[in-house]
Design a protein around this nucleic acid. Structure first.
Lengths: 197, 197, 197, 197
DNA sequence: CATTAAGCGAGACGGTACGTCTTGTCTTTAC
DNA sequence: GTAAAGACAAGACGTACCGTCTCGCTTAATG
């Protein structure tokens, strides 16, 4: 009687799932996260509200799935030309372009904001989007260390956060402009910080 | 005809203002930001809803005023014992304690999150809370540079962000634990980054 | 795009409908029409406000439906013992009792008042409550005419209004006491007015 | 200490009083009684709200005063040409015109409606507007009786109500059109009802 | 002739209700 | 048995007025 309601995912409608993702991403871009509603997503997707409630616990969870379904992943890792600073500069410049793209902004900001107030969501958000980011930077730094360009005892994880943290903060809180100049400076300082003495 | 209705602030009730701040901070701690409502604040404060709508445009704006009314400011600046690393370690350790204090968390997280989706609010938030923070670090670094401990050409603003950005990100997104060890490591790396060669 | 939102009445909750009627009639008796609120009705009925707004345009419309759902109708017509004056006296005396009953007063007064200022409502009110009343009197007068007790050329509709108009006015505006004596006098005069010369 | 707040009427501003009346009558015509508000009257009249609350207990009371300040009174009584039926027909035809005048309708309807639900107000309304009306008709009927045209034992008050009640009901509840034909028929029937046998 | 006390315009206040919107649950019907 | 549709109870939204209050400002009438 007190069945915990676990829906049978084998019978799930892929068509509805896609439509919900598309609708969610469209709407968050059009009206913003605060005015994004489950009703609105259902209506735009041509889907019953229950279909959303059946599979996701909140609009943030829908958006996170929608976003990660689209987002490219980090499987490749960072380029390694042998020149650490140049590689970091290159990748961060690409990130500057990406994060300045309006399409990308709305859902990402929304998720970051929602995560700030919801530990469960942020655990997911971090595991799926931020950790992989930190990891590829840490990996690239480790490769540099293995090549003798970085001090043995440097904390590479923290170094990676020193690249991404200021970047994220400028973007998320708008504490400053997100430019190539900024990321280049950042790379210089971090490379200097971890450089073999 | 389209008068913007600007209320007369000289007739404003200080008692109501305080009661609203207290209620907002209490409630955000009790129920969280998402379930914080203007109605709830008004009821707790023993105030009409209109009194809130008259003076603030949103619950985020109320919270920002409430928070900054309470929050200590940065007038004093950072300590300067002559030992840059020690001073930074000391201050960041204090911040670790502050940001791990539950009282402080709810409103600050809420404001950061709300700011992420609302440029107008984040402008206020940054100007009143984050900029002053960045500034005192920049000032302390400048003093160190004047004392010859820091490279002439180092970008001190970005260096300050390298301290605060990773800190903020760990705390806000919970990408890692906010410990003394972390901030000490951060200080080491940053000091090394800007050190006179 | 400008769909008028017509709800599907086949899915309507009969339970809610009844609860709303009961609550409306109770409350109008307890607090009066001016202090009768949709919120109050919804709360008393254990119903969402939207459920009321979905089906009725105003509290007056709710009350009219509630009232007519309860009110007995006039299917039977007036008694016809052959003695016109006696029959009219009898029925009007019954009406005196009915209109002096506190239970009856509140909703009826409220509807009459609301109708005075709202042509659409009064059209409904008249069609459902007043016209049938006038009709049964007109019918009884016609029967009397057919029996040769009433002048051929008498305007029976106006005669019926001469019974009900003064009655209504005394009751609604409180221009005088609503007693058997009054209605008996009324009947005498009207019977005399239409009597065959 | 518990002074019941009796304002000093000698210091009252006649200018404000007039402005309030004008505003109330204008507004009731423009927006209807339900949307007539004290705030609106005050704003239109260029008057503080307190000035209204100081002198009247409700918007209905304001309107009643405003209306009676304008309305002509019945001092003159009805014409007496010796022909009762002709005199009544004449006066009622004039009333038909008056009650079909839009200017007149809004406030009068509003007051009648408000009175229906407020015994205190209706006492005032009846005493100041309806009783005098009934009285002049009763007086005219008495004159006719003194001239031998009306039965000695006829209840003249009820006869007067038989003229005004149906008239009021048609107008207030819109149970039928308010025409000369209707009032002429009414007069015929009433005159016949009270005629000396 | 200054003083003082009232009425006044103005509008902030604590409240209540409005009518709308969205939430998350539930039920019905179609596939 | 999932899905589209949508009614439902609940409750917050932001607005409009309520009736009370306090603020300066006329404006008498009094001491």
């Amino acid at each position: 009687m007190a069945t915990p309601r676990t829906p049978d995912s084998t019978r799930r409608s892929e068509r509805s799932r896609r439509a919900i993702f598309d609708a969610a991403l469209e709407l968050v871009g059009e009206v913003g996260y605060d005015k994004l509603t489950i009703e609105g997503i259902a209506a735009r997707a041509g889907v019953g509200k229950q279909t959303i409630y059946r599979w996701w616990p909140s609009k943030a969870a829908v958006l996170l799935d929608a976003f990660t379904a689209d987002a490219g992943d980090y499987e490749a890792g960072l380029p390694d030309t042998g020149d650490l600073a140049a590689d970091l500069r290159f990748v961060l410049r690409a990130s500057v372009d990406e994060f300045n793209d309006p399409k990308f902004q709305a859902p990402y900001r929304a998720l970051a904001a929602a995560g700030a107030n919801d530990a469960e969501l942020s655990a997911d958000f971090v595991a799926r989007l931020m950790e992989p980011g930190i990891k590829v930077y840490t990996d690239r730094l480790r490769a540099a260390r293995d090549q003798g360009q970085v001090a043995e005892d440097a904390d590479l994880r923290v170094a990676a956060e020193m690249l991404l943290g200021p970047f994220s903060q400028r973007w998320l809180m708008r504490t400053g402009p997100l430019t190539y100049e900024f990321t280049d400076t950042l790379v210089d300082l971090v490379v200097r910080a971890v450089a073999r003495r």
